Amino acid sequence: MFIVEETIAGADAVQIPTQRGESLLDTAVRYAEERHWDVVPGTWTEVVDGVHVCSCGDLACSAPGAHPGRPDWAAQSTGSATVARRMWQQRPDASILLPTGRTFDAISVPETAGLLALARMERMGLTPGPVTRTPHRRTEFFVLPGAAAKLPELVRELGWALPSLDLAVLGEGAYVAAPPTRVGCRGAVQWVRRPTRENRWLPDAEELASALAYACGRDR
């Protein structure tokens, strides 16, 4: 169940739904079963002497509990709900990672720019796909695969140079951490726009490029 728990000041006070009442196992299975997303268990956090530490053992880990735990993680990912259930039964506190470049890419922008872009999309009558907010204050927009190849030219045509904008695309070989994965003591990844029947068909990067580039340009 998705419950609105907080709002973030910014573009039209976009509401952030927080997921409650489901285990990581149940959620990972649901992503595979209902959305047909590949999932793979990542690292997890442990509390040692009152401090959150990553299972990878690196005390300076930049994403404790929210990154792959093995080099062959991409090959270990699965779209099978049965296999996903077995994986998380073995490690119930593992983070949920979604490989990008398969059923979707993700466009990552600063949180404030993402919320501004969402408000602009709504005014333009656009329907974004699922959007997450990370504890690192980034918003990640799920779009059709291939965005990494398209976006530089799309942004250039809009009058921007991609390196000048804090905008990145996660495509083949990358991943996103999915709600309700926690990132150390920073908090959990949350849905800004959760997966629904209405946004099952993802937008192409071209549909969102203008709103995202404009918002990132204003956020500089």
Rank of each mutant, 00 (worst) to 15 (best):
M1W: 07
F2S: 15
V4H: 07
T7M: 07
I8E: 07
G21E: 11
E22R: 14
E22T: 11
S23G: 10
D26C: 01
D26S: 12
E34A: 09
W37M: 06
D38C: 05
P41G: 08
E46H: 06
G50Q: 07
V53C: 09
V53P: 06
C54V: 09
C56I: 06
D58Y: 08
D58M: 04
D58H: 06
A60T: 11
S62R: 11
S62E: 14
P64W: 02
P64G: 11
A66T: 04
P68D: 05
A74R: 01
S77E: 03
S77W: 06
G79D: 01
T82K: 02
M87W: 04
S95R: 02
S95K: 06
L98R: 00
P99W: 01
G101N: 09
F104H: 13
D105L: 08
A106D: 01
S108Q: 14
G114D: 09
G114I: 15
A119D: 14
M121E: 06
E122S: 13
M124V: 09
T127S: 14
T127C: 10
G129S: 07
R133S: 09
H136T: 08
R137Y: 07
R137H: 11
T139K: 08
T139S: 13
F141I: 12
G146S: 10
G146A: 09
A149V: 08
E157Y: 02
W160D: 06
L162W: 00
D166N: 10
A168H: 11
G171H: 04
P179N: 03
G184L: 09
C185R: 07
R194M: 00
R194F: 05
L202Y: 04
D204G: 15
L208I: 14
A209G: 07
L212E: 09
Y214E: 09
C216E: 12
C216R: 14
